[in-house]
Design a protein around this nucleic acid. Sequence first.
DNA 1: GGATTTAAAATGCTATACAACTTTTTCATA
DNA 2: TATGAAAAAGTTGTATAGCATTTTAAATCC
Lengths: 227, 227
Amino acid sequence: MKNNPLSPARNPDLRQIVYEKLKEAIVEGIIRPGSKLSEIELADKLAVSRTPVREAIRQLAQTGLVTLTPRRGAYVTLPTKKDAEDLYELRRDLEKMAVRNICLNPPEHKLKHFRQIFENMDDSTEHSEYLKEDQDFHLFLYKECGNKYLRKMLNNIIDMINLCRTYSVESDVKISSFAKGHVEVIDTLLAGDCEKAEGFMDDHIALTKQSLLKFLEEHPEGVVYDE
Amino acid sequence: MKNNPLSPARNPDLRQIVYEKLKEAIVEGIIRPGSKLSEIELADKLAVSRTPVREAIRQLAQTGLVTLTPRRGAYVTLPTKKDAEDLYELRRDLEKMAVRNICLNPPEHKLKHFRQIFENMDDSTEHSEYLKEDQDFHLFLYKECGNKYLRKMLNNIIDMINLCRTYSVESDVKISSFAKGHVEVIDTLLAGDCEKAEGFMDDHIALTKQSLLKFLEEHPEGVVYDE
DNA sequence: GGATTTAAAATGCTATACAACTTTTTCATA
DNA sequence: TATGAAAAAGTTGTATAGCATTTTAAATCC
């Protein structure tokens, strides 16, 4: 008698809904980095009270997507070039760790599923399709890494990475080389060669980072150089 | 109509104050793991309204110190043995990363300061004194690591580590070996031997982890074994 | 025009209220 | 006495109103 199948459509949980909506809007670039998040304005637009908006904003601040300035409000974080570099440095180590753990007991079936997807990609593949599968693959790795805290941190960091990535959407990268990187990671994982798998993941993240930084250098508008 | 001299001498930023107070109470073991955090009760005890308490609790949930159950409230996280293992695994990699970065440009003066402190320690040193200096040293490394996001994560994880550590306060470890580990890290950092420094940090964290796990095995009360 | 004062707006918090949900208590029934 | 359903009490999540302090914008004065 726990959950009635005819129970009302959904648990409201407005805070979570507002959080997701804001996150999406920020990551997709609808709300631009640097712009202000007015509690009143957002509450008005989303047709909720200030309470869930406040809590959602604070939740976003903890992942770094939003920067809080006491008594002045919340602003969408405007990542600097160093931020992007720091994020990728951290991501590299964390994903290597995930790969290391997964290698101890690789989920064969799903890995083969992803292998097939990436093997069939080439430079004619839609950029958006690659992005989607790439996202799915990495989220899959996070879920399977077996370390609750590592998973949490990776899920946090990926939001910031995506924020940085909005800058580089139309970047002219070679899809094939990214896809190949994934296949290499998967193959070594399936073969149980942990050390090599880590190395391939290292290469893959390095390539992604390089691609983003190249884009940032070519498009300095909106990117802040600190120090 | 300016400042009433009889205005309440209250510090602003209640949320942060409540957050710190709760964090301390949890990490010090005053509020036991597993116990419930009632918004009303805490608001009452701290003489504030529910709002800052709610926000502080949510902030604590982000670091993992508190576990939120929808519609049922917030509970102080009761770490399992696997939690402790996961935390130390993550901590090891993150601190190695910090050491790697610091090694590129080591802050000589302060490192020497810490070196002296740890060099003068032996098995007769007060356990509490070692704990304090150990804490300070690691926080110092976090601050100097040069990567904003790494710093944030390390500061988060150390709270959870401390929560686990409350169990092992009276652990009968050899202070000298811990202190020696620090000196080794510092010396290799000062010498600019990054690889070795990382290795020594690895050993140091491994030793700390081993000490905690040994304690947990000898004192299974209050520790949950999952899976 | 530039500086100073005043007004408007936003945040941080308080307080109250209420619906939905949990937990506890009560109480009837086996 | 134990069991289980029904009622009561308590909490959370959200909403709304309001106030103090501070920031921001506008207005005023020199």
